[in-house]
Design a protein around this nucleic acid. Structure first.
Length: 914
DNA sequence: CGGGAGACGTA
DNA sequence: GTACGTCTCCCGC
């Protein structure tokens, strides 16, 4: 193999892998017949081989720690003082491993007085200055400080790569801030002192604000609370921590990085060593690999997974205008064509377009690369021109497209001024409407289920983990095959799934009339985003932070020792062993539970549980909302853009992630402060319109129970009306307590409740709960009949349906396991109500969106959906009439045998609007 | 480091 | 008792 100075250098952190391999159980089992352990040897060698395979041009250099003390011990005698001595069965593997690596012809560096990190740092730094690309293979995250545009990390055991952007993504700080970051946190294992209670979150927060460790130290007085105090106490020792965390870049070496080259392997010696340590596979490979010579890598992909069925396919990579034009003609004349975009990110706000792929007939697909920019990438067609040619096709309502999760593609394209239209079919939604629970609805799963085909995984072309290669960095041939296959598979999936869906008119109508039309509505809501006041949240974070610190001190005092309040495990120890508080409930795995209800009860008799409850609630609010939401504001728009997932929830609901806007707190006053940060833009109001008691109304409609339908038709307070019936009193006589019980019963019914569940909820006896339920069913016999019918139907058909024909399959309904069967029965009761509610609000969203399009008034924006509620920003000039119109649209979205009531709230923020 | 457990936020 | 997503901790890879 011909190596030039410009081959990438692969620096292997042998010591880090040695330790990791040593702890892998299946490797631990390995030893020679006379008992010499060889697991760590095998692990490290496998890892080196896989690196050689991945980087055939790479110049592999292996570095190990030397024995004995290093300069860090001189700096700080306690350095790594907590480390137990190296176990003998690991130590005994080092010398043979070194011998083998040398016999392989790989340069091996073991430098006394420094650690492997420092040698790697020095070599990487030299290579960086010479412009040589360097890949550091390590399991040690501290090395992130070495990352530059030329130097990246790869963890070969987990197959994850990390470059400059990857460091930021992974840690939240830049590579040049990593030392500061490590110094602040310290390291318990290495005995490096940092700031007490300063973990990754705090370190990132401080460094974001003050840039460097010195910046943090200079501003230490500004940091409030216990943690600020801890910081000030740590200031004197932080320079030492900084020095300890700093990897040396100037270790004296005999050779410079460009002089360190592999030599020819000593096959004879290798054969001897492999035999001696009974490394049979390596020995076999060595013998088999003779013809290939030197560093030829043997394919040692371990798992013999079944070979995927080979698709009969022809994939083009379009690099010329002529080829592109020819494909455009094919697309225009196709009935429907499959379409997919390739981008730099799965985050639609951050994603940049890298290429597009199409398929017009099964087995024929093409990839049009547009922005691959790795070194040596071929010249591609002009980006702007290509988009100009694609735009009329992608925007045409007549030219039909099929895709997999086209909402994503539509979002990305919208940033290039292309409004994707003519979206006829989405295979993800086809699969979801056909059977929401049979499979996940990503392409890999669908191809597997419906085509029996294993797709090329993204990880296989890009690597995996924290930071894989982005698509623009991937070799065009590899990328082209992957991308074209996606288009091809999409078309194939459509041809298989759609006919199945079309067998049921009702299911098809859920697809045609609900899910497909909803997609552009969601695109537009995601693009719109929501406005958040970060200052308000920061303030709230500080307030909560101080309170948490107080709670922690109090709790430690009561417990008599320090412990982590967020650790259920440590809490169990403190409560149930140290303090000998009785165990009330166990977790599913048998450990004593510290769940909220348990602590609530214990709080009556003991002081600590109350503190824990407050701490838990507040730290949840802080970490999930007040700290996190401000970070999610897009720099492009100044707003927060969630993702709505249309094919996740089994019942037909949407779900929301990144951030989840559907679980913003409302119940506690601290929680509501978070809603106050969801604000209206200037001159606008937040309007929240929610459906009142929608699931109970649906229960009335589905069951046609006379009493229930009447109660709703007469506009009664439903819980009060239920209470009057059950407790046999007049409406006026219903007590608060009776109403509360009735409400619990009403909710319980929606969840398929049992007497047991109800008794727990209400804190009453099982018998009394059963009495309540019997009474309820006596008063509302239609509901009982409906419940029984639903259970029976579920059992007969294996699925239940919503009012509009959305199916939920219940595979466990026939389970012999009674617990699973019961759970499936409850789901069967719940799904038609929850699912019909989802159908209704989706229909309402489609109507609202259609009205907004028609009206084309930028002063009205639909920003969020929270299951039974839609949230809008509306300009104050048109507030009243718009709210009235929106309420009407929502009320009239569907027609039931009971009134559907939407109620609007208006305010400066989401809290006020409630 | 990835993922399960346990906890908790919402409808 | 239904349906979700995200946090921290901690085990096992």
């Amino acid at each position: 193999m011909n190596k030039t100075n410009l081959s990438p250098i692969i620096l292997v952190d042998g010591s880090s892998y040695l330790f990791r391999a040593y702890h892998v159980p299946y490797l631990q089992a390995l030893s020679t017949s006379d008992g010499q352990p060889t697991g760590a040897i095998t692990g490290v060698l496998n890892m080196i081989k896989s690196l050689q395979k991945e980087y055939p041009q790479g110049n592999v250099v292996v570095v190990f720690d030397a024995k004995g003390k290093t300069f860090r011990n001189d700096m700080y005698p306690e350095y790594k003082a907590n480390r137990p001595p190296m176990p003998e069965d690991l130590r005994s593997q080092i010398a043979p491993l070194h011998e083998i690596i040398e016999a392989m012809g790989l340069p091996l560096l073991v430098i006394e007085g420094v650690e492997a990190d420092d040698v790697i740092g020095t070599l990487a730094n030299q290579a960086d200055q010479q412009g040589i690309d360097t890949i550091i293979s390590t399991g040690d995250k501290d090395m992130a400080q070495l990352v530059t545009p030329h130097v990246s990390l790869i963890n070969t055991m987990t197959n994850t790569a990390m470059d400059v952007d990857g460091v930021v993504e992974k840690f939240g700080v830049r590579a040049d801030q990593i030392i500061d970051y490590l110094a602040l946190m310290g390291d318990k294992v290495d005995n490096i002192p940092g700031v007490d209670k300063c973990g990754p979150k705090t370190a990132v927060k401080w460094l974001t604000e003050y840039k460097t460790l010195n910046g943090v130290i200079e501003n230490a007085d500004k940091i409030k609370g216990k943690i600020g105090e801890n910081l000030r106490n740590a200031i004197e020792r932080l320079p030492l921590s900084y020095d300890l965390a700093t990897i040396k870049l100037d270790v004296e070496l005999d050779q410079s990085v460009d002089q360190i080259l592999p030599t020819a392997p000593n096959t004879e010696k290798l054969e001897k060593l492999y035999s001696q340590f009974e490394l049979k596979r390596l020995l076999a490979e060595l013998k088999a690999g003779d013809k290939a010579g030197t560093q030829q890598i043997v394919d040692d992909s371990e798992e013999d997974e079944p070979l995927p069925e080979k698709l009969d396919a022809e994939y083009d990579i379009i690099l010329t205008d002529e080829a592109f034009d020819a494909w455009l003609e094919k697309i225009k004349s196709a009935d429907v064509f499959a379409f997919d975009t390739e981008t730099t990110s799965i985050d639609y706000m951050a994603a940049k377009l890298v290429g597009v792929s199409f398929s017009v007939e099964v087995g024929k697909a093409a990839y049009l690369p547009l922005a691959h920019d790795y070194e040596g990438a071929p010249i591609q067609v002009d980006f702007e021109q290509a988009l100009a040619k694609l735009k009329p096709i992608l925007e045409s309502k007549e030219i039909k497209k099929v895709g997999q999760n086209l909402k994503y593609d539509a979002n990305v394209l919208s940033h290039y001024d292309i409004k994707l239209q003519g979206i006829a079919y989405d295979t993800m939604l086809e699969s979801y409407c056909l059977n929401s629970v049979a499979t996940r609805h990503n392409m890999d799963a669908l191809a597997n289920k419906y085509l029996g085909y294993q797709t090329v995984k993204f990880e296989e072309v890009a690597g995996k983990g924290a930071k894989q290669l982005t698509f623009n960095q991937i070799d065009i041939d590899k990328a082209g095959h992957y991308a074209a296959e996606d288009a091809d598979i999409t078309l194939r999936l459509h041809q298989v799934i759609y006919p199945k869906l079309a067998k049921s008119t009702l299911q098809l109508s859920v697809f045609d009339d609900i899910e497909m039309p909803l997609m552009p509505v969601l695109t537009s809501m995601e693009q719109a985003g929501v406005l958040i006041d970060p200052d308000l949240l920061h303030e709230q974070s500080d307030v909560i932070g101080s309170r948490l610190a107080e709670l922690e001190v109090e709790a430690h005092n009561i417990a008599g020792k320090a412990f982590n309040l967020s650790s259920p495990k440590q809490l169990q120890q403190i409560l149930f062993e140290d303090l000998q508080i009785p165990v009330i409930k166990k977790t599913p795995k048998g450990a004593p539970s510290t769940a909220e209800e348990v602590l609530q009860e214990l709080a009556l008799d003991y002081p600590l549980p109350k503190l824990i409850l407050e701490h838990r609630g507040l730290s949840k609010l802080k970490s999930t909302y007040t700290d996190k939401l401000p970070l999610m504001i897009s720099s492009k728009t100044g707003r927060v853009h969630t993702s709505y997932h249309q094919a996740v929830a089994a019942t037909g609901r949407l779900s929301s992630t990144d951030p989840n806007l559907q679980n913003i707190p409302i119940r506690s006053s601290e929680g509501r402060k978070i809603r106050q940060a969801f604000i209206a833009p200037a001159d606008h109001k937040i309007v929240a319109i929610d459906y009142s008691q929608i699931e109970l109304r649906i229960m009335a409609h589905l069951s046609q129970d006379e009493g229930l339908v009447n109660a709703f038709s007469q506009g009664r307070d439903i819980h009060q009306a239920t209470a009057a019936e059950i407790f046999d009193v007049s409406l006026e006589e219903v007590t608060t307590n009776q109403r509360r019980s009735a409400k619990a019963i009403n909710f319980g019914l929606i969840y398929g409740m049992s007497a047991f569940g109800l008794s727990k909820q209400l804190g009453i006896g099982r018998k009394q709960a059963q009495d309540y339920m019997d009474l309820y069913f006596k008063r509302y016999p239609g509901v009982l009949t409906y419940m029984e019918d639903t259970r029976q139907k579920a059992s007969e058909q294996g699925y239940v349906e919503t009012l509009y024909g959305r199916r939920l399959y219940l595979p466990d309904i026939k389970s012999k396991n009674q617990a699973r069967k019961k759970a499936a029965e409850r789901a069967a009761i719940n799904a038609p109500m929850q699912g019909t509610a989802a159908d209704i609000i989706k229909k309402a969203m489609i109507s609202v969106h259609a009205w907004l399009l028609e009206k084309n008034d930028q002063r009205i924006t639909m920003t969020m959906q929270v299951h039974d509620e839609l949230i809008f920003e509306i300009h104050q000039d048109i507030l009243d009439e718009t709210v009235e119109k929106l309420v009407t649209i929502m009320n009239d979205a569907v027609s039931l045998s009971v009134p559907l009531i939407a109620e609007a709230g208006v305010g400066e923020n989401w809290d006020q609007a409630h």
